[in-house]
């Protein structure tokens, strides 16, 4: 953790006034079940937000609404001033701006690592193959696995796969990155390499929303921590206050549970 602590200072970067994500009074139901309740959230460019909470609290569902992997029934979501509606053009435009990293990587097992990275630039951005491969290699170097470019995802370790998944998203040069429990499916030894990659992204000023249980990451990298329970945002604060002076009883209980051991 010491290494990370040193990094904090450097990444307490300026956060711009520009709002990139605006969620207003969003509600979502799965059938009759009310999963997200009156979500209101504004994210500025350059923010690093950690979303935590017990399982089933709706944290994943909330960030998956931001790129329309889940549909909301009420309220408004604006990403870069484009409203997310049923309009396919808007959805496509937003998905180009928003990258996502999943718990189970979701790499394409039938394609090589490099092809995983170049697929979307070639087919969505209509880039030439050569150009896409240059960019792909560039990002694979950034996540420190250029030597694996021609292997298949199934030949890599979990940590390596997750770094490929990050590189794959970055190849689309997104303005916002969503992380949905990126380290939850990893062996303890591999968590650090993925977190380091995320930290270096944060240092470069990427706007990030991370659903994670890595409280160390939250303390050092986040500028804001959001706590969710029962489908609602219960509390949000900057990390020091959040961890040292939680206000809500539910937050206190949650923190005592996860920080106890």
């Amino acid at each position: 953790m010491n290494e990370n602590t040193q990094k904090i200072d450097s990444i307490k970067l300026e956060i711009s006034d520009e709002v990139v994500i605006r969620i207003q009074d969003m509600n979502k139901w799965y059938g009759a079940f009310h999963v997200l309740k009156n979500i209101n959230l504004e994210v500025n460019r350059g923010e690093r937000i950690v979303v935590c909470g017990p399982s089933g609290s709706g944290k994943s569902t909330m960030i998956r609404c931001i790129n329309r992997l889940e549909e909301h029934q009420e309220g408004h979501i604006y990403v870069d001033d484009i409203e997310l509606t049923g309009n396919l053009k808007h959805i496509d435009a937003i998905r180009r701006e928003v990258g996502m990293v999943f718990q189970h990587f979701n790499l394409f097992p039938h394609l090589t690592v490099l092809d995983n990275c170049t697929l979307a630039p070639i087919w969505v951005k209509k880039m030439s193959k050569k150009e896409a491969e240059e960019i792909g290699m560039q990002y694979l170097e950034r996540v420190k696995i250029p030597e694996q470019a021609l292997k298949y995802p199934g030949q890599l370790s979990g940590g390596q796969q997750q770094r490929v998944a990050i590189a794959r998203s970055l190849c689309m040069s997104p303005k916002i990155m969503l992380f949905d429990e990126p380290t939850s499916a990893l062996d303890p030894e591999m968590i650090k390499e993925v977190l380091d990659t995320m930290i270096s992204l944060a240092e470069e000023g990427m706007t990030m929303i991370c659903v994670t249980h890595e409280m160390g990451f939250a303390k050092t990298v986040a500028n804001r921590v959001i706590f969710m329970d029962g489908g609602a945002i219960i509390e949000q604060n900057e990390p020091n206050n959040f961890f040292d002076h939680p206000q809500h009883e539910r937050t206190k209980l949650f923190l005592s549970q996860i920080l106890a051991h």
Partner: peptide, 9 residues
């Protein structure tokens, strides 16, 4: 989801 998040139609 992986494909959709990359913006594939």
């Amino acid at each position: 989801e992986g494909a959709m998040s990359l913006g594939l139609s």
